[in-house]
């Protein structure tokens, strides 16, 4: 973008799409995208701060990019006040995304929890648009309640192409599907574990449980792909905030295979 990696581009917000009661998607006027699924951008609201947000749209879309933000802190609260036509700052894309070109003939098993579906959506939509390049795809997604599920507008689309299974953590109004944790959905799909790559993103505790369940199914460590979230200030490996052991999440990750990080301290917190 610029010689000074700290200098954001100013970008117009084209649209603000509500995904759930506390998640919205900023659709940004970025015409030529260079990101790969799983990468993230540094989003600035000038005067309030800068946060890392993973790109939730597929790189096959060339008119805009989507950043989906959950309202959890001071900066994200300001992001939630954004209106179409506003200007935000954007740096990136940063980090290593999903191994899109290396999945080959493997089947893909996506497991998402809550807002963790955002980076997965980028990959899932990418597959949707290049369906012939990929084998069987299953998407297992869980959230606290039905109201917490994001990208609900795309579920029908996905269901027509992939095995989509949903689960809510608790009984709630308007939810007639399964209740429980996302790892329980593994019983819904038949897996050829030797030839399936699992791609997981969600809250730390969810990823920990899912990895535990996958290991019970004799999943090899290098076929479990995880996308991590850490506090980041620079996104470019300088500020020292995001390390997991010897890995610097913003430049070595945020996507790691489990065998890369298995022995790292404070992996799950």
């Amino acid at each position: 973008m610029s010689e000074n990696p700290y200098l954001p581009a100013t970008v117009e917000v084209l649209d603000v799409i509500s995904e759930s009661h506390d998640v919205l998607t900023l659709r940004l006027d970025v015409k030529k995208t260079s990101h790969m699924p799983g990468q993230f951008m540094m989003l600035s609201v000038f005067g309030f701060g800068e946060i890392p947000v993973s790109v939730s749209s597929s790189p096959t879309i060339t008119d805009y990019i989507d950043l989906s933000v959950k309202k959890t802190g001071s900066v994200t609260s300001v992001v939630h006040e954004t209106q179409p036509g506003d200007t935000v700052g954007l740096r990136g894309p940063y980090g290593r995304g999903f191994p899109v070109d290396e999945v080959g003939d493997n089947d893909l098993l996506f497991m998402g929890g809550g807002i963790g579906l955002a980076p997965l959506r980028s990959f899932i939509d990418y597959i949707r648009d290049k369906r012939d390049d990929f084998n069987d795809v299953s998407v297992l997604y869980g959230a606290r309640t039905a109201d917490d599920m994001v990208f609900r507008g795309e579920f029908n689309d996905w269901r027509s192409m992939f095995n989509l299974h949903l689960i809510a953590d608790m009984e709630c109004e308007g939810w007639y599907g399964r209740v429980g944790y996302v790892s329980e959905l593994l019983s819904e799909v038949t897996l050829d574990t030797e030839n399936t790559i699992a791609i997981v993103c969600g809250p730390s505790i969810m990823m920990k449980c899912v990895v535990g369940e996958l290991k019970k199914l004799w999943y090899p460590d290098d076929k479990i792909i995880l996308s991590f979230e850490r506090r980041m200030k620079c996104g470019i490996g300088k500020c020292g905030h995001c390390n997991i052991g010897d890995k610097i999440v913003c430049i070595d990750g945020p996507v790691f295979s489990f065998d890369e990080v298995r022995d790292s301290p404070e992996l799950w917190g």
Binding site: T72, S74, T76, P203, E229, R231, I244, G269
Partner: peptide, 13 residues
């Protein structure tokens, strides 16, 4: 607060 994330998750608590 060095590693504290929005949503109160702190991997190095």
């Amino acid at each position: 607060q060095f590693t504290l994330m929005a949503g109160n998750f702190n991997p190095r608590n």
